[in-house]
Amino acid sequence: MTGVSTLSSGDSRIISSAAVEPADRGGRAAAALVAPMVAAACALLLHWGLPSRQSPLPTRLYPMLLAGLLAAAVVLAAVHRAWPRLRPWARHNAPLLAGGIGVLAAWDLITLKLALMPLPYFPGPDMVLVGMVDDRGMLLESAYHSLILLFTGYFAGVAAGLASGILIGWFRGVRYWGMPVLKVIGPIPATAYIPLVMALFSNAFVSGSALIAMAVWFPMTMLTASGVANVPVSYLDVARTLGAGRRYLIFRVAVPAAMPSIFLGLFMGLCTAFLTLIAAETVGVRAGLGWYLKWQQGYVEYAKVYAALIIMAAFFSGLMTLLFAVRDRVLGWQKGMIRW
């Protein structure tokens, strides 16, 4: 009897709170969804309403971008209304969109409108957009070259790091000789090898990818080895009583158990690979985003420098997101979600 009464009182509390909350939450959701529209409208008014104090005078590209963002905000609100399943997604992204538009407007304000930052080093958003559109062929080609170089070096480094990491992690003898080598040469930044690599390989692509591979190899080896060496003995014992041989123990037990650690190595390797890629492209390689950056800097074309930086940001964060997606898929067996 008491159980029933507690239950019903609990129910009524839930009902009453449910009656209050949706209005409040709905109001907040509406505000969140309207925010990007308001931000885009304000940015447009600001751009058209205030006189420009820098030359050249702005083109129509920046207003077109803002109009596009305004349209995106409207689409987001429509999605929120029409598609209940995407509602949390829309609600999550609306404030971020508004914030992004706010940053654009602030940038426009302190450069073109108020001329607080000196040209040619700090062009406004319109100039950067113009640079990006004018040089789109070159930028795409540079991004393509960077991607090829990055992938060649990264995958070579990952493969080498996995192999040496498994050997060092599993075999005592290899660990004895391998660890000192790793400890001595590992911490040297790969870019310090630029003179050596350039002397070894006459081909700039080969030397560039070798450099990236070296940069990736170290964290990959370190983290694979520690993951493999720290596999719980109980898993190995179980596998041995199931009739497992060495191959099974290494590739079906030790390596899968080391996967969380291996993914840490993949992330750290990707970060050092970006760093080394840009460094390699600014010295030897005559193509790619790093090279483009340096080249445009030489001509004091800062609008194009920023354009290249924006492309680079999109390109690198895209690859990171991809790796995160792969990790979430491969490590789906882990309890809970790892957050880093």
């Binding site: 109980s234 898993y235 014992d237 179980v238 037990v253 899968p256 067996w333 309890k335």
Partner: peptide, 10 residues
Amino acid sequence: FQDPNLFPWM
């Protein structure tokens, strides 16, 4: 064993 020791990735 007392702990089932199932392979968590399988």
